[in-house]
Amino acid sequence: MGYEKKILVCENSIEGIFSAVYDGWHWENKGISVKIAAEEPEYPELFADRVDITSDSEKAVKVARTVRRKLGEQVYEAVCYAAVSIHPDKGTAVFYLLRKALGGKRCDRHVLEALADPAVSLVSSLRIKVWHEIHRFYGFVRFRQMAGGILASVIRPENDILEFLGIHFSNRFPNENWMIYDEGREKILVHEKEGECCVYVQKVLNKNAGGFLEEPDEYEEMWRAFCSCIAIKERTDLKLQKQFVPLKFRSNMLEFYE
């Protein structure tokens, strides 16, 4: 006999979480309460069954399709952003938001407005956090030109946003070979000239993170000069600057190197 509560432990990715949502749905229909953990739970729970979920792209695609079709792009985006955040309860929040919107034959496209619901409130705050980080990196990624004109960048985002940068930068630099390396997660987003973007998760680079970058060129120097010239000294406000570019972002922004 199983408990009335199940903890679904899945891979920490959108695919993993969506697979768990798919499996969890049936249990929840039977009145079993579900929790989704995208990371190994710190301590085992006493009165819950642990179920290990294998990522299944077919199930994940089904979930994605249903969400997009029934709830619209905005909700879909919110769920995806929440799923890549670092919050430990993100999986469960995504699950209960979808239950609220789609359970019992409902179809609530305005579910994100129901902020009194804790799952909705968590998903929507994660969505904003992740969205902010993505947009910050649209601006804060710095490419360095390497041999053969390849552009390379190293970042260290808090949330797992690397894939989300792909669309933006492929559209922006379709005719360049470029790559962005997430040094914390050791994966790399690679774009080939006129081609698609791919993420490689294995350790593609043997050298230490960042070590693969070559020496700076004269444009880096000019950029640093530009950034210091453009400030009005009568208005100096380093605290404000720090609010906008917190120190943790600066490690890869050459204009902040001493």
Partner: peptide
């Protein structure tokens, strides 16, 4: 998109 912020806090 803001790419950086100068010492006077402007984008």
């Amino acid at each position: 998109i803001c790419h950086s912020f100068s010492g006077d806090g402007r984008c």
